[in-house]
Design a protein around this nucleic acid. Sequence first.
DNA 1: AGGGAAAATGGTAGCGCTGTCATTTTGTCT
DNA 2: AGACAAAATGACAGCGCTACCATTTTCCCT
Lengths: 306, 306
Amino acid sequence: MLRNQGSVSESARGKILEAAADLNYVPNRIAGTLASMSSKLIGIVVPSVGNTVVPEVLAGVNAVLEAAGFQPVIGVSNYDALREEALIESILSWRPSGILVAGLEHTDRARAMLKGCGVRVVELLDVDGEGIDIVVGSSQRMAGRKSAEHLLAHNYRHIGYVGHDIRVDIRAGKRLEGFRAVLHENGLNFVDQEFHPSMASSVEAGRVGLARLLKRQSGLDAIYFSNDDLALGGYFHCLEHDISVPRDLALFGYNGLEITRLTPQPLSTIRTPRIAMGKVGANLLLSGGPSTIVDVGFELVVGATT
Amino acid sequence: MLRNQGSVSESARGKILEAAADLNYVPNRIAGTLASMSSKLIGIVVPSVGNTVVPEVLAGVNAVLEAAGFQPVIGVSNYDALREEALIESILSWRPSGILVAGLEHTDRARAMLKGCGVRVVELLDVDGEGIDIVVGSSQRMAGRKSAEHLLAHNYRHIGYVGHDIRVDIRAGKRLEGFRAVLHENGLNFVDQEFHPSMASSVEAGRVGLARLLKRQSGLDAIYFSNDDLALGGYFHCLEHDISVPRDLALFGYNGLEITRLTPQPLSTIRTPRIAMGKVGANLLLSGGPSTIVDVGFELVVGATT
DNA sequence: AGGGAAAATGGTAGCGCTGTCATTTTGTCT
DNA sequence: AGACAAAATGACAGCGCTACCATTTTCCCT
């Protein structure tokens, strides 16, 4: 009885809206969705909300969705593919008009559901791999390569790696792969690697990981971290133990978090356009265009730690 | 035709589920919700996803919701009361089984809608004020008071404040109020205050804010920051400019973010049990008990910066 | 084997809207 | 004023389920 379009006179409309406001009546969108067979819900499945990366992407997504009157339904998979599958199924049961997921790696069933559900799918953050429908991200492998090239160009040759569990964080694994490929191409390899199993505070993982690595190995001149959280932890370790950065040790991260340019020495890292990525993804989702792959690229930020 | 409870034989059930899996059929929960008049959606309205505070609370909430088969529908208000009102209305139109909002301050219409919508309401983060139904948080004013008492007990007397816009962040304003009250009770006042209008990076606000304050005032011996992000920024400023902490200047924050105990010197701050807060809130929401106020308290963390 | 309770199955109204079509009212032009 | 188009209103089926009741089948005990 309370629809905007078509056939309601303006005069009547005003009165009804007024009455509705008085009674604080809220229309039932569940019924509306069922009747119109098209919902104003958009599903979103992300791996975590640990650091600010995902929230920033979501901010971009949300800005677009909200402007278009859509409501996000969110699930957090904790980097667990089976959990992701379950979340996708659960979210799909709300018959969203579209769904955004992080990354390109999913279980077979999850892919099947996403392909067969009849709504647009956006995969965010990564472009290295086979997408389902729309893909918006930047190349993780290329980011790793560029990082390595940067360090080599600055004559670092004794490079260590400090990361978290790359079986869990597939994108970090791809970066590592790209980095290592460049090392190999130059007849080099990581001097040593430290994988921290933690999923909790990555800053802590970086701190602890670097401490362990330095205890094992001397002669390292640069560390590649799986991301800025870890790099930040490593930087804090250096500050506390009077390791001069970058003279004694260079540090390189990934993400380009805001905080990395506010530390006493800004960290060298790779900045990804996260908010833009979210906006582009959401816009493509709503636009109804063809399947596409958008590489939003990244920017190598030369800080003071290399 | 595909419901769990009641009257379907086990044998038949298996076959149907198998067929459903093959066709990757996903039940339509929209229809189910409409028919049963009870949804498995929970609304959540938060002011931002800037730092990790809100995501941590959400993680706690989400853990409970997911275990109970509920799906969160999220809105982000950007600290804007009118936007919050609109989001509440929008979310309510999905007929959630409950709704969680941040803080106790809302527009009159928002309060009216929350009171009249017929579902349980949880207000999170703060307990200083009049709640609608269930309130789970900790006293902001008391946190401010304890912070001031701590600094005074350590003989700091020339205290400055660096914060962001407290008209926007009401809880930060309450902490400031509590802090100032203790100063007054001891015949003191802030030497100077710096309010940074930024809503972007709070770390930057802290850095810039402290720099400005120190430019105006000499003789300050301690700074109270509106939260840890700001305090972190201030700490970075000190590190860069060789201001010895806490000898030259003591720093105190709020939140107890993980990162504050990983900096070269752990920051003094007040830690709030955010994940627990989220869990408690979600549990109370689902439990169906009476209206309550739960003060989850906080812990004053004496770091190395006071 | 017969009787009664329990379990399984089948059938159907209706949740609160939307889309559509039939009908009525209003407006406009000659 | 009459004729016609346009706008407004009214009426109603149906979206895909769930809740509920009626019926049928199965099971168990005497």
